[in-house]
Simulated assay, not measured.
Amino acid sequence: MTLNPWRLRLLADLATYGTVRAVAQRGNLSPSAVSQQLATLERETRTALLERTGRRVRLTAAGVLLAGRAREILAAMDAVEAELRGLADEPAGTVTLAAFQSALHALAEPAIGRLAARHPDVTVVLLELEPHDSMPALRRGEVDVIITTRDYVGVELDPGIDLMPVTEDAVVLVLPADHPLTAYESVAIEACADQPWTFDLPGSYMSELATRLCREAGFEPAVICRFNNYLLALQQVEKGRSIALLPSLAIDPRYRVVTRPLAPAVTRRITAAVRRPPAPRPEITAVLSALRAAQP
């Protein structure tokens, strides 16, 4: 049996992104080309890797197993390539970076711009993943680097994961421009007990944090909107329909809102995390260095 690395990568991508169309878009291929290559991989392995349900496909148990092994094989190949490239002292290769929404524009994109200027042979694939999704994806080998919050790293950290502090970010109260609470330099959360709120989606970091802060202050928040997009939350506040708790990194100056720090102050620690590789990968080191330099 001869396994083709390219086809293994397509299978691993299918396990990560869920659809043939998404795999095709990521690889600049047609969906039919991806399907043909996966069918060839099934013939090469003499194993049913996919189950077809209507127009969609999903991995069989064998497909899930091979996708996991494929990530290990591809990671080992990447490590060998990195060692060889390291002889030339110039980082090169592809790094998959996942970041939560407010870190994308404030941290990830500036880092990628800085990286492109210094190391043009390093390509970064950027994904949006919230903290509760990104750490599991890192452990599964679906991404190389994540930007997360220290709260989601876990008390007993996997010894195979390395952390790099990036920055701290204040959580602020976001108010309409004419709101009475803008008269204060800082605001205690209990002063907002009778206010309508816009929250993130249930289960997200900001939704859980905002809910906990309100309950600790002795009230249940009246949530009238839930979005997983901070720009939509800012629109709601700008129109005077609600107030919100958002990280400072999420505040877009294009919106006519006013922010006030909480009293007492609430901050979150932002951290980059990577799997500890079997051999140094200069391209990942370059990405981490760019993140460190891109602090706001």
Rank of each mutant, 00 (worst) to 15 (best):
M1Y: 09
L3W: 04
A12F: 11
T16F: 12
R26Q: 10
L29W: 05
P31M: 05
S32G: 04
A33C: 13
A33I: 12
Q37G: 04
T40S: 12
T40V: 08
E42R: 12
R43D: 06
T45R: 15
L49P: 00
R52Y: 00
G54R: 08
V57Y: 09
R58T: 07
L59Q: 06
A61L: 09
A62Y: 12
G68M: 14
I73R: 13
V80Y: 12
R85A: 12
T94N: 11
L97Y: 08
L97H: 01
E109R: 14
A111G: 03
G113W: 05
G113Y: 09
L115Y: 04
L115K: 04
L126I: 09
P131W: 09
P131F: 04
I147F: 07
R150I: 15
Y152L: 14
G154D: 13
D158R: 02
T167K: 05
L173R: 06
A177Q: 13
D178P: 04
L181I: 03
E190P: 03
A193T: 04
T198W: 08
T198N: 13
D200Q: 14
G203F: 13
S207Q: 10
L213T: 05
L213V: 01
C214E: 00
G218A: 07
I224W: 05
R226F: 09
R226C: 09
F227R: 14
L234R: 08
L234D: 13
V237S: 02
G240E: 09
L249E: 11
R268L: 10
A272C: 03
A272N: 02
A273D: 02
R275F: 01
R275N: 11
R276H: 14
P277L: 05
P278R: 02
P280F: 15
V287K: 00
L288C: 01
A294V: 12
